[in-house]
Simulated scan of single mutants.
Amino acid sequence: MPSTDHRRATAERNVERILDAAAALLARGDAASTSAVAAEAGVSRPTVYAHFPTRAALVEAVATRAIDHAVEVVERAQLDDGPPLEALDRLVELGWQQLDRHGAIAQASADQLPPKAMNRAHTALRAPIGALVARGQREGAFRTDLPESWLVSSYFALMHTAGDEVRAGALKRRDAVAVLQPSVRALFAANPAGSR
């Protein structure tokens, strides 16, 4: 009989294979059905269902993993350093790179997950962005007439809208950061002089 540690290690490997498979299928424009994910991952359908009982649970897990990776990237933006508006510009640039890289996952998440699931998936990323907003408000660089949580949610909304516009062909990928930075700045800035 296999040890508990061996079973746990096997289960963890299976989860990673399933998530990798779902992400790869979504990136190729596939609907990532349970059968397709199982085939891509080299596991059985019951194994997929054992870890992810619904397609929504699988998509949420894929989105959460992509966002966790984005958190690592955002840490490189050094949001605690320099003027808040400059940190915001770095955040937008790095955030767009991650969203663009994981556009298929973002699209599947937006299409298939209810708002509560989307909020859960974004939880890890909300903390560093919320900290930047709080710092900007304390230092007088960001507006204080709107709550921190609203500004953070608005940041996500603008980023995802840019992704939608790029996918629809209404915005060129190479222009997204140049459009996003002044848009986000204008929303966050304490006064019009703070926007470019």
Rank of each mutant, 00 (worst) to 15 (best):
R65Q: 13
I67H: 13
A70M: 13
V73M: 13
V73L: 15
E75H: 14
A77T: 11
Q78E: 15
L79P: 07
D80M: 11
D80E: 15
D81I: 13
D81E: 15
L88R: 10
L88E: 09
D89K: 09
R90I: 03
V92G: 02
Q97D: 04
Q98A: 12
L99K: 02
L99F: 09
R101S: 10
H102V: 00
A104D: 03
I105T: 11
L113Q: 04
P114N: 05
P115V: 00
A117M: 06
A121K: 01
L125N: 01
R126L: 05
R126K: 12
A131R: 05
L132V: 08
A134I: 08
R135A: 10
G136E: 07
Q137R: 12
A141G: 06
F142Y: 10
R143G: 10
D145A: 12
D145W: 11
L146I: 09
L146F: 07
P147R: 14
E148L: 07
S153I: 00
S153L: 00
F156Y: 14
A157V: 05
L158C: 03
L158E: 03
L158F: 06
T161I: 08
A168T: 04
A168M: 08
A170T: 15
A170F: 12
D175P: 00
A176H: 01
A178D: 14
Q181Y: 01
S183Q: 08
V184D: 01
V184R: 01
R185G: 06
R185M: 06
L187T: 08
F188P: 01
F188E: 04
A193P: 00
